[in-house]
Amino acid sequence: MRKDKLSNIAFYIAVAVFIVIIVFPFYWQIITSFKPPEQLWNIPPEWWPSRFYLGSYISAFTKRPFLTYLKNSAIVAISTTALAVFVTSFAGYALARLHFKGKNVILALALSVSMFPGIAIVSPLFLMMKQWNLLNSYLGLILTYTTITIPLSMWNLTTFFRTIPADMEEAAKIDGASPFYTFVKIILPLAAPGIFTTAILVFIAAWNEFLFSLTFNTKDALRTVPVGIAMFPGEYMLPWGDISAASVVVVLPLIVMVLLFQRRIISGLTAGAVKG
């Protein structure tokens, strides 16, 4: 019994250490964002702000139109998520359940698109966006992000649809329902957790993207948050407090979202990644 208790305690200590390691960098970021300027560059670094200084947050919001960046990021990320999930849930279902030729080719194509280094397609894409008059618009980014997230979400949803038991569909089919009807009325509701997870993956990818956003949207009124953060340092100087504050502001919505939907994300992943 004593041994059990001891190993129990050891286990909890191990878990605690693990959580500390995981959360520490973020803790450090928050601490830095509250440090007054005179404390920022102390050696050795101090683990707690000498006083809670809000100046970094104030300048994060007043020196740059940070609210506009947040709004832009939200619009782009939400639209991307909606479009990508819409498009790939159709495709995913067809690839998982319907019988037609070339399915493997399509999956392979999607996978190989996701293999191409993003930096290599920036400049041809810029040309296209220019021709279509999509520079400095939300839509240009939304279309690009949708495309680059399609492979992951298509694979994810395809594997997810495969895990849904075939019985219900079979029953519907015997009742004379068309495959499409079956899809909308029976499969989609069952797939909600998987779709939700995919949506979150897409959202985070779109929220965090930097390179395309920097290149396509050069007007301040249309910039997204990751590029906005790159706007803080000066030519030769780094206002580290402002950068930390801005980063905390960007990361906070993500963390809140992740914590709120934690159960959903995990149950979605659980169902989605089961079968290769």
Partner: peptide, 8 residues
């Protein structure tokens, strides 16, 4: 897109 460009 053109419209959204104008909006911006």
């Amino acid at each position: 897109s053109e419209k959204s460009g104008d909006n911006s």
